[in-house]
Design a protein around this nucleic acid. Structure first.
Length: 473
RNA sequence: UCCUGAGUAGCUCAAUGGCAGAGCAUUCGGCUGUUAACCGAAGGGUUGUAGGUUCGAGUCCUACCUCAGGAGCCA
């Protein structure tokens, strides 16, 4: 290999007029007689090469002319600006070296045409190479980074709870069970919340970020059996402060994605103005594609400062119920909502569709919520809890609450729910040794990615989705 | 677990109970500006499985399998 200027496709604008070497794969190939148009990809983007037969050695032309899609290669050529190219640049190919040629008899299965869900999931390991899937994974990475960054820069300590646990955290959802050496059973965690309550009372402000497992037989566009969750837990924080925290957290994530991923969102087909509305950017004359994000109003506050806070609508359970009653009376939803019941998916879809921003619903009936939620002093039949519903019908992305801080109340709640007291003794200890008010929430990363990218199914938001009917590849 | 729908070429899909089809992909040929390129040709089938009705079943009936969407439950 000649000592050349190794470059990535994403950085080609900085190499205009230079001869560079790219390392990647053949994404597509068109030919027009003695002129070839190979499209190369390298993980950072795609670029079209131009190969006139008269301008390159015969071996280079012949190699490319018959090359199979997704063969790996290095290609050397000169970067040239061209108004016809989608990215603004093309590569005048000078030389090419094949690393591995895809065999003729087994062509790359993912074509540029449409495919069905089952076929694509069966070939997920190859589907990931397509521009849309790569763009989604880039946005996912930024969402995960921005989420952690929000806590890291606001005084939180990351304390990850165990993945193997001795019992159910809430005792409701079904768990994946496994043998733990000789006589014990272990379960894959379905939430680290109880454990980070302990670390919060040690360190003040903490969060955890890791995989979570639910063995529910849910078969919908919103469910995975293995998903990632980020959970903050804060000592001395009460419900109102928790709502502010969730608001600032989501605002920071959306702001960061809009700052760094306009091109990816466009590839994915996201309605960007709807996402801008979440952080308070009113619809404006559209900027040209590729133009840098307007800095002034994108520099939204992180953790609250002088900037005007970005307020999300807040509804009590009672207010949300009234909204559903009104909707039912006007024929906007099919079934009436029964007061006291949790909201069903159609209910959540209706409520969230009434707002351009995520809507925070708080103070649900305690009877339908988890045992560890603090009752509302103003009405003990209600729990100091919140669900955040993403806009556009994406449903719940965050669930959280203030936690019970009284030893006696928590103990009686555990008993009422028929949970094994012995297994929760350590959790009760937290209320015995210096109990304080504390609150936290959990956000499912995949649901957040699905919403922010505007996807219709969470299976595209994670490299290898685990669902009820699929554990391959 | 329940409800609904779908399984036909490698892929996406057609086919009134009457000869198994198209586009893309693959192979071959043509084309010097193509953008899911285009034009011509060729190869490619146990119609999810097992039974049944019928002169005749991809099509109708029964059971099962697989997948998808929704409900419940949840993030």
């Amino acid at each position: 290999m000649p000592s050349t200027n190794i470059a990535t496709i994403a950085s080609l604008a900085a190499h205009e007029g230079q001869t560079v070497t790219l390392r990647g794969w053949l994404y597509n190939l068109r030919a027009s007689g003695k002129l070839l148009f190979p499209i190369f990809r390298d993980g950072t983007g795609t670029i079209q090469g131009i190969v006139p037969k008269a301008a390159v050695p015969e071996a280079v032309f012949d190699t490319l002319k018959n090359l199979t899609l997704e063969s790996s290669l290095t290609v050397t050529g000169k970067v040239r600006a061209d108004s016809r190219a989608p990215s603004g640049f093309e590569l005048d190919v000078e030389d090419v070296h094949i690393l591995q040629r895809v065999p003729d008899e087994t062509p790359f299965p993912i074509t540029l045409k449409e495919h069905g869900v089952d076929f694509l999931m069966e070939h997920r390991h190859l589907w990931l190479r397509t521009p849309r899937q790569s763009a989604i994974l880039r946005v996912r990475a930024t969402i995960m980074r921005a989420a952690a960054e929000y806590f890291d820069t606001n005084g939180f300590i990351r304390t990850d709870p165990p993945i193997l646990t001795p019992n159910a955290c809430e005792g409701t959802s079904e768990l994946f069970e496994m043998d733990y050496f000789d006589d014990d059973k272990a379960y894959l965690t379905q939430s680290g919340q109880l454990y980070i309550e302990a670390t919060a009372l040690a360190l003040g402000k903490v969060y955890s970020f890791g995989p979570t497992f639910r063995a529910e037989k849910s078969k919908t566009r919103r469910h995975l059996t293995e998903f990632w969750m980020i959970e903050p837990e804060v000592a001395f924080l009460e419900l109102d402060g928790l709502l502010n925290l969730a608001e600032g957290f989501i605002t920071h994530i959306v702001t960061t994605v809009l700052q760094h991923h306009r091109a990816d969102l466009k590839v994915i087909g996201r309605d960007i103005p709807k996402l801008e509305a979440v952080i308070g950017i009113s619809p404006e004359p559209a900027t040209e594609p590729g133009a840098p994000s307007s800095p002034a109003h994108l520099q939204a506050k992180v953790g609250g400062s002088t900037a005007e806070p970005n307020r999300f609508p807040r509804l009590s359970y009672d207010e949300a119920h009234a909204m559903l009653e009104d909707a039912y009376s006007r024929g906007l939803i099919e079934n009436p909502h029964k007061y006291g019941d949790d909201f069903g998916s159609p209910d959540e879809t209706y409520i969230s569709s009434q707002f351009a921003k995520p809507v925070m619903i708080h103070r649900y009936p305690a009877a339908i919520k988890a045992f560890y939620m603090q009752p509302d002093p103003a009405d003990p039949t209600k729990a100091l809890c919140v669900d955040v519903l993403a806009p556009e019908g994406y449903g719940e992305i965050i669930g959280g609450s203030q936690r019970v801080d009284s030893y006696d109340l928590l103990k009686s709640r555990i008993e009422e729910h028929s949970l094994p007291l012995a297994a929760f003794q350590w959790y009760l200890d937290l209320r015995k040794y210096g109990s304080v008010p504390h609150s936290g929430f959990g956000m499912g990363i995949e649901r957040a990615v699905a919403w922010i990218c505007g996807l219709d199914h969470v299976r595209e938001t994670i490299p290898f989705a685990r669902t009820l009917n699929r554990i391959y590849p």
